[in-house]
Design a protein around this nucleic acid. Structure first.
Lengths: 337, 337
DNA sequence: CTGTTAGCGCTTTCAC
DNA sequence: GTGAAAGCGCTAACAG
């Protein structure tokens, strides 16, 4: 009834616990014969090594922490799915922590470290100052996703958001648009800055005046920002959004306002979430390989754990425009207005 | 540089490690004076107890496993968010495991148990036979969500899906519909059966002939099922779907087919995911309190852990119809057809 | 190739 | 109220 331990196996096999330990890990020099015998006995006894004890002894837990700001935004589950898959492949299991951007993240990281995670994946970076992050993470291997954390021994994984910001605008320009606004993400975030920078670059390259309004990352934010935009002075025929949720919110506000998308105004999203092709109009968007991002984060973390001295510097993941129905040629009726 | 342990604190305070341990937990009989002194010293030294060691010693890890079939379906993140919040309140942290419905779930449960989780929340139940579940979970406290696992020492948390299945139909009947089909979830799942049962009940009560086609849980499944329905013989003026994703997919197929929703056919979803109000037409749906479900699961698990002998039997959570735009009165043009 | 001896860092009887 | 001693279950030198 009580739990089978390594000693029970050792006793049953007539060997020391050490030998059992070695036979069960790939680790040691054990004769093939005894290894097989021990394994059989272990199986018969239904021996399940206590991972806590294993971890404590070996000082590695085969466990990683994943910290995301908001599980509810469809982007993150996708990322987590990729991370979970990759983690499973490297025999790690994931502690999932939801931690809104803010200073409380420091506690969450501390908690994770107390649990002796082998490493942490931090999606977004809630710390304004690099020193705070450094203090919070100590010497635990860390991968930051979607944010350039300029720290030694911290690796970064991200899509090419600058390019992503540009792509949308270029598409719109090719479609004949000139009044193109950008609905930006929360102020201060690196992603926000990178995408905005891309937007500005492309606008400048086209000789157009930029117009960016801070929205956020939720559909509600998109609605609100779009209304602001409608209230503003120079009318706009196209919009690039911080993400798909914002785009969807914006479309809603626009159509509530009697405007047709893409007839009157074109909208381009960002991320390409699963539902992007199912909303009406189907979202034209800048796709990032979200679950690959999660996978890449885990692989990078694996490498960092294996060799903390040399943090990998993976290349930014590619983004690409996905053309669907929410962006179209500028309408002649309005283009000349 | 090296890690501060309880011994360092003990030494600095001139007491035994036992006393430090007691001072830092609420546990023991320690004079208020020494307690405070020790706490101060611990803080000064920035002592972070190794949770692994703590867990091993105390045989409880303050850790729970949450197993979901598909993180990517918006329903689950919502549920997880609720669970995470509640877990945080009870000082537990969550191992998140994604495990498609299928026998491999047994391995995932084993893995979680090896990690010495204090309990497991299993969303859905991939085991056809109760005995398999029983074997896989052993004596680890378990809460099954959205599925009645008829096992002693296993608790169940769920919404009132039978009622949920009924509600949608009743609404449609009140709207004048008579040709009402049900796009069901994956065969074999309890949720699927409960909702279908509710559907059938309500149809019978209205003297209507039921028509259920198995769809699944994804938008693609919804599209496919709707196409099947369109190909079928008796035309239908309304549909209740297994979940919102299926409803969204169905709407897409319908409108691709030149049918207007809700003009020609009404569609009712299930769950009320975050985007339900943002798709067009905004989804009329049966709302379940998803994150409350996650919270309830954790609370129930807490109770079960505290007293494994008496598994709580929480009441089913309430569901309610949320009226938006995807369901309307039967169109006179077609109703008489 | 295998066993002995120490721990990993903390909790917990059981005494005093 | 406090300490000594004995683990929790496993891994890891160090011998032989």
């Amino acid at each position: 009834m009580s739990v089978v331990t390594i000693r029970d196996v050792a006793r049953a096999a007539g060997v020391s616990t050490t030998t059992v330990s070695r036979a069960l890990s790939e680790t040691g020099r054990v004769s093939a014969a005894t290894r097989e015998r021990i394994r059989r006995i272990a199986r018969d006894l239904d021996f399940r090594p206590n991972e806590l004890a294993r971890s404590l002894g070996a000082s590695r837990s085969m466990t990683i922490g994943v910290v995301v700001p908001d599980i509810t935004n469809p982007f993150f589950p996708q990322l987590i799915a990729g991370a979970e898959t990759a983690a499973r492949e490297s025999h790690r299991t994931i502690f999932l922590v939801q931690s809104p951007d803010g200073p409380s993240a420091a506690d969450d990281l501390a908690q994770l470290r107390a649990k002796q995670v082998d490493g942490i994946i931090l999606v977004g970076n809630p710390f304004p100052h690099p020193a705070e992050l450094a203090a919070a993470v100590g010497d635990t291997p860390l991968v930051v996703v979607d944010r350039g954390a300029s720290l030694p021994n911290v690796a970064t994984v991200s899509s090419d958001h600058r390019l992503g910001g540009r792509i949308g605008v270029e598409h719109l320009v090719a479609l004949g648009h000139t009044g193109i606004a950008h609905l930006a993400g929360p102020a201060g975030l690196d992603v926000t800055q990178a995408r905005s920078a891309g937007y500005r670059e492309a606008m400048a390259a086209a000789g157009l005046a930029p117009r960016v309004v801070t929205a956020g990352f939720s559909a509600e934010d998109g609605e609100r920002a779009a209304r602001l935009l409608l209230a503003g002075s120079p009318p706009v025929t196209a919009v690039t959004a911080a993400n798909d949720l914002v785009a969807i919110g914006a479309i809603r506000a626009l159509s509530d306002h009697g405007l047709d998308v893409p007839g009157d105004v074109s909208v381009i999203g960002y991320d390409d979430i699963g539902l992007a092709s199912f909303v009406r109009p189907a979202l034209t968007t800048v796709r990032q390989p979200t679950d690959e991002l999660g996978r890449a984060a885990v692989r990078t973390l694996d490498a960092l754990i294996a060799d903390p001295a040399s943090p990998p510097r993976p290349a930014p993941l590619p983004v690409a425009l996905v053309e669907r129905d929410s962006a179209g040629a500028v309408s002649t009726g309005r283009a000349d207005a």
